[in-house]
Amino acid sequence: MANHKSIFFLLFILSFAGKVNAQDLPFREMPPAAKIFTSGTLMGRLTDGLGFRFHWATAGLTVENLSFKAGEEARTIGETIDHIYTLVLMFTNATMEQPTTFPIETKDLTFDEKRTKTLSFIQTASALLKMSNDDDFERYNLVFQQPNGSGQKLPFWNGLNGPLEDALWHIGQVVTLRRMAGNPINPKVDFMNGTVSN
């Protein structure tokens, strides 16, 4: 797949970041399923599931919720969301054939900005994956760059069992923590069908 597609989709998705209200954020419901099974459409669907779960795990969180944590040594909900942001960025950068440069700073972003950007990253990755063929995945490497010039390069397989699955893991933690904080997710969300009733 030509790299100009990555640039096009990045600009398209990011053009909406920060300009939408909560009702317009992506993944309120799962997008329609593809008509055919390919490596690209399967990975795109898996990424859509990540977006749907993140959307609802973070919808309606309060400022007080963000500081909640299960114990003294545990991350707060807000810190967990920061970590999900980093993981999703790493995965999306791989699909865009871009390196991830550390450290990744999130302290200057509000919660709403982080939530919007995370969903936009997921939407970008999903769109690119759905257009991908088998050969494209050979180029979707995780490339990490440190300030001291050192780095690491890992194949897309590591992106699956690494940041993608780790993000899903931590989204589940957010769901549990917010329930403990007294603000469970919307009970009308149907995760099997990817819908929410009004």
Rank of each mutant, 00 (worst) to 15 (best):
L46A: 15
K35F: 05
Q146V: 03
L42Q: 09
P26V: 04
T47G: 02
N161M: 12
R139N: 12
A181H: 01
T124A: 13
A94N: 02
I185L: 11
P147L: 07
T76V: 10
F144N: 04
I104Q: 07
F12M: 13
P155A: 00
F12K: 15
G78W: 00
S67W: 05
H55T: 04
K130M: 14
G151S: 06
N198H: 11
V63L: 12
L142I: 12
T176C: 09
P103C: 09
P99V: 06
N186S: 12
F137Q: 05
T86C: 13
V63P: 07
D48N: 06
T38V: 03
L46P: 00
K188M: 08
I7A: 15
R45W: 13
W56Y: 09
R45Y: 10
F9V: 07
F111L: 11
K117P: 03
L46D: 12
T195G: 10
T110R: 11
A74P: 04
G60V: 05
G162T: 03
L46G: 06
E165N: 14
T110V: 13
T110Q: 11
T41K: 02
F52T: 01
L177R: 04
M96K: 14
F68E: 02
N161R: 11
D134R: 10
G51Q: 04
F144G: 00
Q145W: 00
G162R: 05
A22L: 13
G40P: 01
T101I: 11
G194K: 06
F54L: 15
K188Y: 09
L14D: 12
A127S: 09
